[in-house]
Design a protein around this nucleic acid. Structure first.
Lengths: 144, 144
DNA sequence: TTTGTTATTGTAAAAACTTGCAATAAGGAA
DNA sequence: TTCCTTATTGCAAGTTTTTACAATAACAAA
């Protein structure tokens, strides 16, 4: 998995183009790991590519997510964040402290099957964010 | 289930107050049913209560959702919409045409159990929106 | 009633996000 | 290489959403 333009053929195959903007944004996503807001991504990518504008960042992130190169999910605040698309997983966010963990997709596999059966929909593959109360906050609650 | 201030005791019990703004917004949610954007709610509620402002609408919706009187979910566009909290359900949205269906919570019940076991989190109760391709669009796809 | 506490609202301004359209540049073909 | 097509970007302006703080008004208690 070379660091950068490994993605070019993926895009070209679908008639899309690789641009310096897309590369800069992918680069940020690759090297930051955690979930980033569009604004954070904009600020970091702008360092690599000074001319970059905000609308381009928003459009690019949406584009990358649609094409499977990035993945979007809703942060605790309800805002959309992005990360590089790697292994498929979901999130559980603590409603109380905002702490966030990942759970593998395996747990949801059978639900997705059932949903497809029950709804008639196909290709259900959304990333999902759940909300709950984490172990730490369950403790705190007892004291209060 | 009387139409309006049935909610008052619920709020007071938790130290909150019922206000004309909250009543107006609840009234809109009750009588519109479908998922409404904050802006739509603002416009409709303003007719009932002309002085109402947008920040109040946003804050009130968040407040109602936190307190179980309303429920929020992400529309296909990625924007947050609200509806009155009634029976618990989830949504599946068609990635292609935006068509949206409801699925009861029963299907997810056991997943939530597993998630709690696997993650150590408790009280997981999020409303979830899935994306897929609806029966109609599966047809269309074959032709194209 | 009247008063006091404080949850809630409005105001004003900023930040986040979107949209339409003209200019640019990626990359296939000549 | 150069040209052409058109995907993609930047620009400019709009809309949506958030924030801080002072003014207001619920409602419990006197």
């Amino acid at each position: 998995m070379s660091c950068s333009s490994d993605y070019v053929p993926q895009l070209r195959a679908r008639g899309f183009r690789m641009t310096s903007q897309r590369l800069a944004i992918l680069h940020v996503l690759r090297h930051e790991g955690v979930h980033l807001s569009p604004t954070e991504i904009y600020k970091k990518a702008r360092i690599e590519l000074p001319g970059l504008t905000e609308p381009t960042v928003y459009r690019t992130l949406e584009f990358l997510a649609e094409n499977g190169l990035a993945r979007s999910s809703y942060a605790g605040s309800g805002r959309l964040t992005y990360e590089i698309a790697e292994d498929e997983h979901h999130h559980v966010i603590c409603r109380s402290c905002g702490n966030e963990i990942e759970v593998g997709h395996a747990l949801l596999e059978s639900l997705y099957q059932e949903l497809e059966t029950a709804s008639g929909f196909k290709h259900i593959d959304s990333h999902v964010t759940f909300f709950g109360v984490c172990p730490g906050c369950q403790q705190d609650h007892k004291e209060t």
